[in-house]
Design a protein around this nucleic acid. Structure first.
Length: 671
DNA sequence: ATAGGGTTAG
């Protein structure tokens, strides 16, 4: 076998005198290999309340983190060291030892050094350890963890003897590589050959079940765990709760969590992540505080879930508080936290803070760029988003399909038609196949610009089958430009593809109503009723003093309803003086005529605005979140309100941000 | 020798 020569530079750290004592490998695992560079990602918050915080200077200890955060030990150092050791063995200068091979294989596994692992594997073949089961399992594990499941399975098939660990290694390998089906398929085989799975096997299998769409296997495995008492094991328990959480069954996940005698930080993280995925921001914050109270130290897993949750509910204050907590606790700010922070600040309305976090990242990866670009896109700052995209290309970060989607969204939200078409074409150059969502954005872009026929033609010529979302973009544009015929055509296509969505029904009925075709409008309403399609109830929420207050239209149950009503009447009176005219065309047509203005006054965002004015000091920025898009009347009212109240009002709807300031909106009335 | 938790779009 050929061994690559050792370069002199890689030898300079070697302490040769240690080698003969057969304890040469201490250095091999020492921190010296990891370099002393800056931490992979660090930011400081010198301007905020957390300014007094310690800047991050620590070096990460966790090797798994080092790898994931581009801090892995230098390639050449590990490779040449490994090869050097093998060379010594080849020349009879070093006695091959079981632990020696074992440690080197572990190192390869840890640092995902597949090539070196292969060399060690072939070195072991033909040695006295050729048929050593423990060594064989280590090799198997090395291949599995390095992602070469084919080599792992091949070796597994050839092994003269296997034990439960061999099976477990292979199952966990498939499970961790996202090949759930293959992992689960091995279980009956293992069982029928007389091998009893242990806690390790079950954790892996449960992880695989959580990733599979059907719950058959998972429930059987749950029963199996209970029968053998494995559910008491914290790994199995956490996997179980994570599995149910991934299926969206949060009640079962909570029940398992509560039943866990020994919870650890992973159990907490799995539960918090489950609620975060469902966008249950309030509940996540509650759990986070509980976790702190019970003296569990949050990890970067916890923080990224919490920031994701704050992002989805737009909780600026709470998000800031947790950010300060990360800094104060001296936690290691790895890329995941930084990226979720960017998203959190952007989605909770502060694009400035998002940019600040972005700039302070030591290393911006593709997700960091995507997050900041989409942040600018959501705020309607198209030119800035495009500029960032160009900077990204200059920084030689490879854009992906999400990058392009964000760029196209930026164009669409700012009415940059030519730019949008240019970037859509540019995708080809980067060999990224446009998906349905990219086509949706282009239809939106053309449609908003009033080029409805072009948009229709674009759909007709799409290389992939258009979905309801594509036709939905066209329908929205038809509503905007009052094109009834094409709108009806688009709506028909949507009804065929997705009959249960209320959105297109409402849009179509409004198109008919505004064209005076009341019969047609009534038919759509009838159709909606018959098919049982329901309109999602609209609501708005604001965060005041770490508490979220939610409003629905015409809310009569609110304890402060009278004060809120009075305040809105006051605002309404003032804005009418400077030119606000209530626009009733945005209210569903089938409402009684005389009710229209009344209903309009109590749109949930107006209630939220009145409430915020009552509860916050003068001049304080008001941040309102909505679960649907803001209507034209509220948009107009808010512009005037920002002027008379002398406050900045930021509204986040499902589509984008509106910054109202001094009578104007950042969207320039284009949304 | 083998196990569980986290990011960006729409």
């Amino acid at each position: 076998m050929k061994i690559a020569p050792i370069s002199s530079s890689s030898l300079k750290n070697l302490v040769l005198s240690d080698l003969p004592k057969l304890k040469p490998f201490k250095w091999f695992f020492s921190a010296a290999n990891y370099g002393t560079g800056p931490p992979p990602c660090s930011f400081t918050e010198s301007d905020s309340a957390a300014a007094a915080a310690v800047p991050f200077t620590g070096v990460l200890q966790d090797e798994d983190l080092l790898r994931k955060t581009h801090m892995s030990s230098s390639e050449t150092s590990t490779n040449s060291t490994g090869l050097y050791v093998l060379d010594l063995i080849n020349h009879g200068k070093l006695e091959p030892e079981r632990t020696l091979y074992s440690k080197m294989l572990n190192k390869c596994t840890l640092l995902r050094k597949l090539k070196l692992g292969r060399v060690i594997h072939s070195h072991i073949q033909g040695s006295t350890f050729e048929n050593d089961l423990v060594i064989q399992n280590s090799i198997l594990n090395m291949y599995a963890k390095c992602g070469s499941l084919e080599e792992a399975h091949n070796l597994f098939d050839k092994m003269p003897t296997r034990d439960m660990v061999s099976w477990t290694v292979l199952i966990s390998g498939y499970s961790q590589s996202g090949r759930a089906f293959e992992a689960l398929g091995l279980f009956p085989q293992m069982f029928h050959q007389g091998f009893q799975p242990n806690e390790f096997t079950l954790s892996s299998l449960l992880k695989a079940s959580g990733a599979s769409p059907s719950d058959d296997h998972g429930r059987q495995l749950h029963a199996f765990s209970l029968k053998y008492g494995f559910d008491m094991n914290v790994h199995v328990g956490s996997s179980l709760l994570d599995m149910y959480a991934r299926w969206g069954h949060m009640q079962e996940a909570e029940a398992i969590f509560n039943g866990l005698a020994a919870k650890n930080v992973v159990s907490w993280n799995a539960l918090i992540a489950g609620h975060a995925r469902k966008g249950e921001g309030e509940h996540v914050m509650k759990l986070f505080r509980q976790m702190l109270r019970q003296n569990f130290e949050p990890t970067h897993f916890t923080y990224s879930s919490v920031f994701t949750a704050c992002a989805s509910s737009g909780s600026f204050e709470q998000g800031k508080w947790v950010h300060a907590h990360v800094i104060k606790s001296g936690g290691q700010p790895i890329a995941y936290i930084g990226n979720t922070l960017i998203d959190m600040y952007a989605k909770s309305g502060s694009i400035k803070d998002a940019k600040k976090v972005f700039q302070r990242l030591v290393k911006q990866d593709v997700v960091s760029w995507n997050s900041i670009i989409s942040g600018y896109a959501q705020h309607g700052l198209g030119a800035e988003a495009l500029q960032l995209f160009e900077e990204m290309l200059k920084a030689k970060v490879q854009p992906n399909e999400i990058t392009f989607l964000s760029v196209l969204t930026a164009c669409s939200h700012s009415g940059l038609l030519d730019e949008g078409q240019y970037y859509f074409e540019l995708m080809k150059k980067y060999e990224i196949e446009p998906q349905v969502s990219h086509h949706v954005t282009v239809v939106d872009l053309l449609g908003r610009a009033g080029r409805l026929d072009e948009a229709n033609k674009f759909i007709k010529e799409m290389p992939i089958e258009p979905t309801a979302a594509v036709w939905g973009a066209l329908l929205g544009a038809c509503r905007m430009h009052k094109n009834m015929d094409l709108g009806a055509y688009a709506a028909e296509r949507i009804f065929e593809l997705d009959p249960h969505d209320s959105g297109p029904h409402v849009l179509l009925s409004n198109i008919y109503a505004s064209a005076g075709r009341l019969n047609d409008a009534a038919n759509v309403r009838k159709m909606m009723k018959e098919s049982g399609v329901k309109k999602e109830p609209a609501c708005s929420w604001v965060e005041i003093e770490n508490e979220v207050h939610m409003f629905v239209a015409n809310d009569e149950s609110h304890p402060m309803r009278e004060e809120i009503q009075k305040m809105w009447e006051k605002i309404s009176g003032k804005i009418k003086e400077i030119g606000y005219v209530p626009d009733t065309s945005h209210v569903l047509f089938f409402m009684d005529q005389q009710d229209r203005e009344v209903k309009l006054q109590y749109h949930s965002e107006k209630l939220a605005l009145a409430f915020s004015v009552l509860k916050t000091p003068p001049g304080f920025t008001i941040r309102i979140k909505k679960n649907i898009r803001i209507c034209g009347d509220c948009h107009s009212a808010f512009k005037f309100a920002s002027k008379v109240l002398r406050r900045e009002i930021i509204v986040r709807d499902t589509n984008r941000f509106h910054h109202f300031h001094d009578g104007l909106c950042s969207c320039r009335d284009y949304w």
